[in-house]
């Protein structure tokens, strides 16, 4: 069983964490999409802390040797999923970046050419 003092400390940390998420969203540093994911994670952790029986029952039901094993397994899967999702996202952003660099570079060339033409005309 977790000691009460540790429990309180953890809950305080989690609450601060939730506040951080809200602040990030407010400052437009995070999309609503991710807000839901991260706050659900925080809420689940708070529930786990407040109702340890629920965790124990669930882990017994699923056949884990220790409740902590279940928590670690779930955490690892969630992290794997997140990294996978981020890898996809990075690839998508990379492709967009390539497109932008190409188009801007071509546009710059055209602008320069047009400018040169104009200066020549005005000289004539």
């Amino acid at each position: 069983m977790i000691q009460t003092s540790l429990k309180i400390a953890l809950i305080v940390v989690l609450l601060i964490y939730l506040l951080c998420i809200l602040r990030a969203v407010k400052r437009k540093n995070m999309r609503i999409n991710y807000l839901i994911f991260w706050s659900v994670m925080g809420i689940i952790l708070i529930i786990a802390l407040l109702a340890p029986n629920f965790i124990e029952n669930a882990s017994n039901f699923l056949g884990f040797g220790l409740p902590i094993n279940m928590i670690f397994s779930i955490a690892i899967f969630i992290i794997l999923y997140l990294i996978f999702d981020l890898t996809k996202l990075i690839t998508k952003e990379q492709n967009k970046n390539v497109l932008l660099i190409q188009e801007i570079s071509l546009l710059k060339k055209r602008v320069e050419e047009l400018e040169n033409k104009n200066t020549k005309k005005s000289e004539d």
Binding site: V98, I101, Q102, I104, S105, L106, K108, K109
Partner: peptide, 16 residues
Amino acid sequence: YVNLIHNLGIGGAVQT
């Protein structure tokens, strides 16, 4: 010439 504003690698350059 076209001057790419950032290095893209041979594939990205050729596509340009």
